[in-house]
């Protein structure tokens, strides 16, 4: 009932913290690479988007599990 909803909400928040930190580190490394070698910007941007999508996929996995907790 209430505990399940609260647990699900807190779990979703923690999962998003993890995803945020992960993508932040990824963006930092990507920007450093672009600053060092501006002509590689195309390759770096493509790989950055791929890695960001994969990390976000895991965050969404956690979100779905939290939704399962709320809806059932």
């Amino acid at each position: 009932m209430e505990m399940a909803n609260m647990g699900a909400a807190i779990g979703a928040g923690l999962a998003i913290i993890g995803a945020g930190i992960g993508i932040g580190i990824l963006a930092f490394a990507a920007l450093q690479g672009i600053a060092r070698q501006p002509e590689a910007i195309k390759d770096i941007r493509a790989n950055m988007l791929i890695a960001a999508a994969l990390i976000e996929g895991l965050a969404f996995l956690a979100l779905i599990i939290c939704l399962l907790g709320i809806l059932k």
Partner: peptide, 13 residues
Amino acid sequence: IALAIRLFANMIA
């Protein structure tokens, strides 16, 4: 399963 849930969650969110 991760492949399925990734696409589904991105679209529905």
